[in-house]
Design a protein around this nucleic acid. Structure first.
Lengths: 230, 230, 230, 230
DNA sequence: AATGAATGAGAGTTCATTCAT
DNA sequence: CATGAATGAACTCTCATTCAT
């Protein structure tokens, strides 16, 4: 009789169909599929970018039919948000896992920089996409800011710690300084890995470390020594 | 740029129309039309973003028929590139216009920061779009890098000037340091005006100025003074 | 009915499942499930109409999984037909249950009208859907005509009875007149309950009764009296 | 660069694009195209019904590309409404064009019935579709009621005219009687031409005419004569 | 040189139906 | 028998670009 009125835009899915998408998969197999789709999506997004990625591509990469995609995700935007949230979470965890205690010596700061740069490099593509998609979606802007915030907060705590210990100029605003220095590292990584400008890793890490310590007004012998030699 | 998939594939524009586009407008009226389209495009792009902007919108905003658009520009991509190039040029000129001679005192540096921030604020939307579109087009990446380069180069010269005059630690790499500090300012402006994080203008400018001077290892009384007071 | 285009074309259901559908439910629980699905379907169809009803909705309303639906019914079309047949049967029974014997006085005719109108009102939504779906399915057209036929036949018998008793003009064609008068009542009910035109119940029943008695050329005192008064 | 984000549901057409649809075609060629599409739509709707009609079918029938359809109409629903409105208007005009003056003799009434039946037969398919689509769209319900109203009003005036002239029982409610009798004729035509029940034209017209005159309580010699003969 | 209409390849999404567990 | 997930053919609508006038 009546053929299916399939794919008619403007007619939204019946509530019952959407429920599963909201509830999440119920069976073990369902969970596996969802995860497979997420992984596939990450790979395709990294390869093709957001706009060039088609839902078809993701489904194909995950070896499922197109319709299956919609069992788990509402739309391309939705799965991107899921991927982005996961990556953002990972990056935040990676940054926070390091031990920021003790004095910020040149070596420690250098190691910290290296850790950030490595983490960024690994996730550069997705981070860039978050940035790009953030242009049209407020949610992505939030995620982008959260990643940033994690880094900035950590820097703020380090600076405050040094100020409290008398190891840093305590007349400066720790938070704003951290905002500035965090931005510096963030942007260098972006220019490096996303815009494709090439830097020598060691030299760049050295430069960042020096500027960071000086900018944070931390009294460090090596830095001071360098200044003294001048 | 990547080929558009729509239109009438397989059928290319008639030779005459092609030629007209390549020659550029010859008459005075033609020039005016082209300028009107560029202005309209900038406005529409700023309002709607790149993806959401339709060629129709630009034509309507410029009060010309849709077909007329293609008399002056090859494609949506082409007009965006034209807009971007113009804005980038303006920004570069604005940054370069200031006088970087003389010692980089706190006041001068602060003023310089303010100039940059103001310029960015005025052009924030288009700069963000350049960034966004740069995700898929190498040409835009280049333009983005050029804007950056202009700022970085200027900072490099300032640092080198101070090093030559004995007013700054000359053991540091002037160029890499400029890259870092330039990134800092750039990114702060981006977070501020595009991601919408709010900062107190004076405080932020103060913080940026201090970090800049310290990070560049410039010997300045006020900065030193502050450190001394601590 | 016309073939559905979706699903997994080319792959037909496994023989076992096919058989189960044809045999009908054997266990007591099976019967209950089938009934629950029918009830649920009626409710959903009434609320959403045929096209907007999804198999999912019916399954959810009946608290069974989607797959279970197909254990009992071949398709959405099939369950609609089952619902329609049931409702049609009920309506036919309701109409036939009244006692058409004796002279068709004003009071009796009025009461009969009222019974019809009430029955229609109760089943209006499904009757309208039968009509609607009848647009594409011959089976539904048949069911629609059967309901009608039941009413028309009954009216035919009444008229013929009166003609035989000398209580009505016997030069008129009893059957065609019944067709006309049956259509009248049917359509009024449709306009009233489905198209939403509002009528005063008593006045409308009065008007229908008068037209019916006059149209059927039945000699009734009250009707004649009214005419005489004029 | 960016490929067209074509057909992305959820993103509505830019205002400028929609404008033409609202303004209507500006050139003569445009008007012709619009008319061609309307004609094509009517043909396809009549052949396939509403649900089975695809926008593709209409475009093909009108010998235009799919996209051209959307230059003139928002959607399938929109063009159906346009077709329906036009047909409804035609029917209303056809009904109103006849001259209802003078006494409603048997012959005049018979001719009037014939005119209605012929008009309905010609437009039966579309009228049925209006009915069907009316199930989901209030606008169609309105159009359907308007067509009805035109007929009912005309009948009301005829009855009132006769009542005023002393040629009809003036104790009956002219309007409700017209509602009843109009419904009768309407529904007979529907059953006849849409549900496919076959009637002998002359006999049916005769029956309708008699019932109409009697039901409207009009004193006519032939009718009275028939009654007298009985 | 300008206009307004024409084009058509696709992209996203739905849902009846089937199948593995 | 029940369940929940899988399938994929359709179908609608968009918009960059071209063309006839």
């Amino acid at each position: 009789m009546a053929k299916a009125r399939t794919g008619r835009p403007g007619v939204s899915a019946s509530p019952e169909q959407q429920e599963r998408r909201e509830t999440g998969p119920l069976t073990r197999r369902g969970h596996a599929r969802r995860a497979a789709l997420l992984d596939a999506a990450r790979r395709v997004f990294e390869e093709k970018g957001f706009m060039e990625t088609r839902v078809t591509d993701i489904a194909a990469e995950a070896n499922v039919a197109q319709g299956t995609f919609y069992t788990y995700f509402d739309s391309k935007d939705a799965i991107f948000q899921a991927v982005a949230t996961r990556v953002a979470g990972e990056v935040i965890v990676e940054l926070g896992s390091s031990n920021p205690q003790g004095a910020a010596t040149y070596e420690r700061t250098y190691a910290s920089m290296k850790r950030f740069i490595d983490s960024y490099r690994r996730n550069a593509k997705i981070l860039a996409l978050i940035e790009q998609v953030g242009t049209f979606t407020p949610e992505m802007k939030q995620i982008r800011l959260q990643v940033r915030e994690a880094g900035v907060e950590r820097m703020t705590r380090i600076i405050e710690h040094h100020q409290a210990e008398g190891l840093a100029d305590d007349t400066i605003d720790a938070n704003l300084t951290a905002e500035a220095l965090g931005s510096m590292v963030d942007q260098i990584a972006h220019v490096w890995f996303n815009l494709g400008k090439e830097f020598d890793e060691q030299e760049m890490l050295h430069a960042l470390t020096l500027v960071w310590l000086r900018g944070a007004a931390i009294y460090d012998q090596k830095v001071a020594g360098q200044a003294a030699e001048a």
